[in-house]
Simulated scan of single mutants.
Amino acid sequence: MKAFRLDALEAERVANNGAYLSFLKERHMSVGLYALDKGQSDPQNPHAQDEVYFVVSGRAVITVGQETTPVARGSVVFVPAGVPHKFHHISEDLRVMVVFAPPEGSGNH
């Protein structure tokens, strides 16, 4: 079994000075923690994999393709591979669990 604690993942992400921490990579999927602070802009580009975002904390708006919706703790958003998407109007520091299938390569965030 592999088990993780959000507070430990957040501390590791901060220690590595990155917005994204990939912490699990398996044959068919990978999982990471993505962080954007209040007022920050989201620099990501479309990915080659399908992905699911689970908002752990914070508030923002996400646009996926031509659709836009507010997100907050508990929100789950599916983004198909290749579709442009961005978090914006980040009104509270955002922490998001990201699941890629198949696993992401380097440089996705």
Rank of each mutant, 00 (worst) to 15 (best):
A101F: 01
D7R: 00
P46R: 13
E10V: 04
H47Q: 02
R95Q: 09
L21M: 13
D93V: 03
F100K: 07
K25H: 03
R5A: 14
G32A: 13
I62A: 05
G18K: 14
V31F: 04
V96I: 08
D42G: 15
V56Y: 11
D7C: 02
V56L: 13
N16E: 02
K25V: 13
E26M: 11
D42R: 12
M1N: 14
M29S: 10
A8H: 09
G74E: 07
V61Q: 14
H89S: 15
F23E: 02
A72C: 08
P80E: 01
T63F: 05
Q40S: 13
R59L: 06
R27K: 14
P84D: 00
P46M: 04
L24P: 01
H89M: 10
I90H: 08
Q66K: 10
G39Q: 09
E26P: 06
D37H: 15
H85K: 11
F100L: 05
V14P: 04
A15K: 15
P43F: 00
P103K: 06
M97R: 00
V71N: 03
N16Y: 06
V52M: 07
F54M: 11
S41D: 01
A8Y: 12
R27P: 01
A15L: 11
G74N: 06
P102H: 10
S57G: 10
K38W: 00
V96M: 07
S41K: 15
F23H: 08
H88L: 10
Q40W: 02
H88Y: 09
L24E: 00
G74Q: 10
F23T: 11
F54N: 04
R27W: 00
A101V: 01
D42M: 09
V98N: 04
S106K: 08
T69F: 05
R5H: 13
A60I: 14
G107D: 09
P70S: 13
G32L: 03
G32P: 12
V14I: 08
E26C: 06
M1D: 14
D42A: 13
S106N: 12
D50C: 05
